[in-house]
Simulated assay, not measured.
Amino acid sequence: MSTKMLSFVSLLAVAITPGLTEAAQADKDTISTDRSTAISAPKQDHDPATDIASITADRGIVTRPGRFSIEPSFSHAHSNSTAVAIEGYTVIPALLIGLINISEIQRDIFVGAMSLKYGFTSKFEAAIRVPYLSINEDLREREVFQGTPVDTLRESSGEGLGDVEISARYQLTDGLAGWPYVIGGLRVRAPTGEGPYDVDQRVIEDNQGNPIGIELESRPTGSGFWAFEPGLSFIYPTDPAVLFGNLSYVWTLKEEQGFENGGTVDPGDIVRFGFGMGFAFNERTSFSLGYDHSVIRKTTFERNIDLFESNFDRIQIGSLSFGLSQRLTQSTSLSLTVSIGVTENAPNSEITLKLPINP
């Protein structure tokens, strides 16, 4: 294979968006999680585009027909936020009468996942991803106007199977005549993890024994809702780099849960988009820089004839990611991605390590 062709293959391999399910995802998935870069071995008897396996967040070229791709992965996301709640009134701009509650929340999410992909044709592949989550959360708070210097500490954790994802992707264009590669996809997330309404709850009381809220006994490992995500990915090789982008919409089904006397919860749908560029240092090492953003719409709660909405109109989650990939053998790559949250609700940092294997 010529030097020019090898360069094209290496550059195209890094055109995958650094990606939280989950938890992310987020869930984030997550909200939360799906970020890295990879290079597959060039083959002289194949179209270079089909020689590059789709790794991570469905941003690459589809898997070759009749071939499996196995991808174990591990990620750690850390979040640290401070919230100030004020209940009172202002006498003058410098004097507040009432109660100020300051709380600090630290959350660590560890996700181990196994993904399996299979190429049915040169343009169509299907995949399944099974995650396992471990979540630790610490809450430190102090009621400032109670006259106590002692912080109240609460710890909670959760561990178990997350939401399993099944996806299918189809390559719509061949990237010829100056056009980008366009890949259409559909991802389905099943509520196999323990959702927020599946875990036990306890009532929080104030110093006088009055109930002031409800707290979960443990952290949920799943969303508790079915979700469907159609989307498009774009890859445009332009020497000496590759430009990429993606756009998708997450439609979440509402469920009858959350209220003892019957009610329906409708989680807000999500609009996701991302863009970036990849660059190959040589035939084995590649680097990518990308940005991902999610807009989560307002959640609504219905009980009998009453309708309630969440306090936030919408939630913005944006992350800037840096990815580095090294091809270890002809069939194995190792990729490392570091993501930094740039919006208030995004995880402070996330580190993802993946080992895609193409036997």
Score class of each variant (00 low, 15 high):
T3P: 05
V9C: 07
S10N: 11
L11G: 15
L12F: 04
T17K: 13
T21N: 09
A26S: 06
A26G: 01
D34P: 11
R35T: 09
A38Y: 10
H46F: 10
H46G: 04
P48D: 03
D58A: 12
F68H: 07
S69Y: 07
S69Q: 14
P72Q: 12
S73R: 10
T82R: 15
A85V: 11
E87V: 11
Y89L: 07
I92G: 11
P93Y: 15
L95P: 03
I97K: 12
G98Q: 04
G112H: 05
A113V: 09
L116Q: 12
P131G: 07
Y132K: 14
I135E: 03
Q146R: 15
P149S: 13
V150W: 08
S156H: 03
S157C: 04
G158V: 03
E159G: 13
G160K: 10
G160R: 08
Y170H: 13
L172S: 06
G175C: 09
L176Y: 09
I183C: 00
A190D: 04
P191C: 09
P191Y: 02
T192N: 05
D198T: 05
V199A: 00
V203H: 10
I204T: 10
I212M: 02
I214N: 13
I214W: 08
E215W: 04
E217Y: 03
S233I: 03
S233Q: 06
F234R: 02
P240Q: 08
V250C: 00
V250I: 07
T252F: 00
F259Q: 08
E260W: 02
G262S: 02
D266C: 01
P267I: 01
D269G: 02
V271M: 12
A280K: 06
S286G: 15
S288L: 08
H293S: 09
I305G: 08
D306A: 12
F308H: 01
S319M: 11
R327W: 01
R327M: 05
V338I: 11
I340R: 07
I340L: 12
N358Y: 08
